Simulated scan of single mutants.
Amino acid sequence: MSEFSKSLSVSSSALRAQAARLRHVSENISNADTPGYRRKTVPFESLTDPTSQISEVKTGRVNLDRTELERIFDPAHPLADESGHYEGTNVDLMIELADAREAQRSYEANLKMFEQARQMSSSLTELLRK
């Protein structure tokens, strides 16, 4: 496997991982007002292919945030208990927006790396044709 192919493989695995992260962040944001919803997080793992010795990024199993759910007082809510409280969510929009921004920038950086490797490969091919 050429060095260009290896770099394309590494950056494409990182693109897939950041896309998965963005997908879970967007789910968290869309469910920020859903009673009982727990924030989802996705860990990244390094996966090394023993034959090619390429380390790629892989997403791990989706985890649910186990912090306390917000207790909301609203006796008129259908989920309220006898004290008038119900469990809200543990999604903090500021954290989700920060995670989304970080994932977006990481995605853009990996996309730039992918594009640079592709351009270098194309330029090398053109030089070899001459």
Rank of each mutant, 00 (worst) to 15 (best):
M1R: 06
S2A: 02
E3N: 12
E3I: 10
F4Y: 12
S5V: 06
S5F: 11
S5L: 10
L8F: 13
S9V: 10
S12V: 05
S13A: 14
S13P: 03
S13Y: 04
L15D: 01
L15R: 03
L22P: 03
R23I: 07
R23G: 10
H24A: 11
E27L: 12
E27S: 14
A32S: 13
P35N: 03
P35E: 00
R38K: 08
K40D: 10
T41K: 09
T41W: 01
E45A: 05
S46G: 14
S46Q: 15
T48K: 15
T51G: 14
S55C: 11
E56G: 11
E56P: 08
K58L: 07
K58R: 10
G60A: 00
G60F: 05
V62E: 00
N63H: 12
R66K: 13
T67E: 05
E68H: 02
L69Y: 03
F73M: 00
P75T: 09
H77N: 10
L79K: 15
A80P: 12
A80E: 07
S83D: 14
Y86I: 06
E87I: 01
G88L: 00
G88F: 02
T89D: 09
V91H: 10
L93E: 15
M94F: 12
I95E: 15
A98G: 06
A100I: 06
A103T: 00
Q104G: 13
A109I: 01
L111M: 09
K112D: 12
K112M: 14
M113R: 03
F114A: 08
A117N: 07
R118W: 00
Q119Y: 05
Q119H: 11
S123L: 14
S123F: 05
S123N: 11
L128D: 06
L128M: 11
K130V: 07
